[in-house]
């Protein structure tokens, strides 16, 4: 599988993603500079976490106009896979490639901790290894992860199986207490209608290297491998 990690000015999880894709999973992986204008035949484009353009105005608001985003939109339209993690998710919603918006956390604070998420739909290229409402322990680290979508669109994406991850307790119970940021219905990750674009606030690349005991993030990358 051919992968590319897009680097924006201010990306800071790009090396983690590159390392996991290339060294842990052995995918053919290269860097993509945000000023590039095409993705050159990639299967998967990863938009990593960080603070592109310093989060000025709104997270992702300026990055969505980087030249590479036109290529990312074309890639997504043609069925190519796109994975946006944290700031990458924020960029994808700003760009309109995913529904909804990500607002300041309800607590107004940056939240950095392990979170538990339940896989709501295992019928996507990103979650095919996570059947049976699998619960994953994955770190979160964000100030703007409070997912919002208006009630009509919420109904539509829920019915269409686009809500892929919800924050939950370690036992998989989706409750208000397990909601770290105020997201509507504990939503932690969504896919587009065609299910080839996933945005998620948790960081799977931070729990995928076997040097670290937590490996639940591998499920996302194994699913991609499985679908390649």
């Amino acid at each position: 599988m051919k992968c590319g990690v897009v680097v924006f000015p201010g990306s800071n999880c790009d090396h983690d993603c590159y390392h996991v894709l290339k060294h842990v999973f052995g995918f053919d992986t290269r860097w993509i500079w945000h000023k590039d204008e095409d993705l050159g035949g990639l299967d998967l484009a990863v938009l990593p976490g960080g603070f592109s353009y310093g989060d000025y105005l709104r997270p992702g608001a300026i990055a969505k106009f980087s030249p590479i985003m036109k290529a990312v939109a074309r890639h997504a339209r043609d069925g190519g896979k796109v994975l946006g993690i944290c700031n990458g998710f924020q960029i994808l919603v700003e760009a309109g490639l995913l529904p909804g918006a990500l607002m300041r956390n309800r607590s107004q604070k940056f939240v950095c901790k392990n979170a538990y998420v339940r896989v709501e739909n295992a019928d996507t290229p990103f979650t095919s290894e996570c059947g049976g409402k699998r619960v994953m322990k994955v770190p979160i680290a964000h100030a703007d992860g409070n997912y919002f979508i208006d009630p009509d669109d919420l109904g539509r994406i829920t019915d269409n199986g686009q809500v892929v991850l919800r924050y939950c307790t370690p036992d998989g119970e989706v409750s208000e207490a397990a909601n770290p940021n105020g997201s509507v219905q504990n939503i932690a990750g969504v896919v587009n209608e065609k299910k080839n674009v996933l945005g998620m606030m948790p960081h799977p690349e931070r729990c995928s290297d076997p040097l670290w005991p937590d490996l639940d993030g591998q499920l996302i990358f194994k699913s991609l491998l499985h679908c390649a």
Binding site: L57, R58, A61, V93, G100, A101, M103, F148
Partner: peptide, 8 residues
């Protein structure tokens, strides 16, 4: 286009 996110 830029200054407001009209979703929210």
């Amino acid at each position: 286009k830029l200054l407001a996110n009209t979703v929210i």
